[in-house]
Design a protein around this nucleic acid. Sequence first.
DNA 1: GTCTATACAGGGATAGAC
DNA 2: GTCTATCCCTGTATAGAC
Lengths: 177, 177
Amino acid sequence: MRAAMDIVAEDGFGAATTAAIADRTGLAEGTLYRHFKSKDALLIAAYRQLKADVFERVSAETGDSASVKDRARAMWLGMWNTYCHDLPAFTFGQRFGESALSRQEGGAAHERIMDHICSIIEDGQASGEIRNLQRDVLVAFFFPPLVSMLKQINQGKAWSDTEINAAIDAAWQAWAV
Amino acid sequence: MRAAMDIVAEDGFGAATTAAIADRTGLAEGTLYRHFKSKDALLIAAYRQLKADVFERVSAETGDSASVKDRARAMWLGMWNTYCHDLPAFTFGQRFGESALSRQEGGAAHERIMDHICSIIEDGQASGEIRNLQRDVLVAFFFPPLVSMLKQINQGKAWSDTEINAAIDAAWQAWAV
DNA sequence: GTCTATACAGGGATAGAC
DNA sequence: GTCTATCCCTGTATAGAC
């Protein structure tokens, strides 16, 4: 799964052939089929594990006790740091999302992360800190900018702490009443 | 090119085989190679034309005379409407961006659109209406949320005018001093 | 410009020995 | 659990006639 993620991140889905994956693991091609029913199954498993790992890390770092604003910030940084430390996994996730396998996967893997941000939004709306807009609109100003900034790291961009904090602040401005 | 875009939008890059493309055009497979050097060339040409078309429409609708805020709004709506009327083209663009061909294309096709938003941002910063952040941070709160909302249309989501206006407003809040 | 036929390579998957 | 060998299919691209 790791090998597949790295190959997809480096050279796209087209490059993730069974030969290439087996090659990178050091195993023979046929051996892959002892562990996964098919190549698609392998890729889907990799995606699901990735999402589960991210959820673990993010939910661990987002304590329930803090203020809504702090929880939002913690979640932003949690995702940021997680993916920064594993950019291939991030890129794999992006590409998987635009692949035909995504439909097959169904989207369940991402849902828990979505629920997490939604619970923060709900609390913020209840306390009157966050605007009473439809959740999907608000979420659109949280993940997508974050993802966009992560993508740019792959293209050589280096973000300063100032810029990261500015982004978190801008996201909050988009949410705030 | 239209056939290729539609196929990619419907079933992903993997489905865009020369056979499938030829089939949809009504032409024979071999005939494609009279018009394009290779399948990759065809897809890249489709992408470039798509971006050029979007740039035409968006820059036409974004008059220079209006206020910065209105120009930003016009650009947002310009992209929104353009892609709403051609969702397959939108989806194709997204998938192309995550494909290996994207690196080959180089990104020049998207650059003009990028310049356009940057000139709006510059003017807003000069007039003191927009925060003095690095442009990439600000852009991350313009296109990505828009794109994210468009993607959801493909999943059956219907946005009301109220929500669209709220999104434009939220984007402006992220930008505003 | 378009078609048919075809060459050629590469990819997914299985069989069966070790 | 792993490897080797192999099958079969599909996908890209070309040749050459019309």
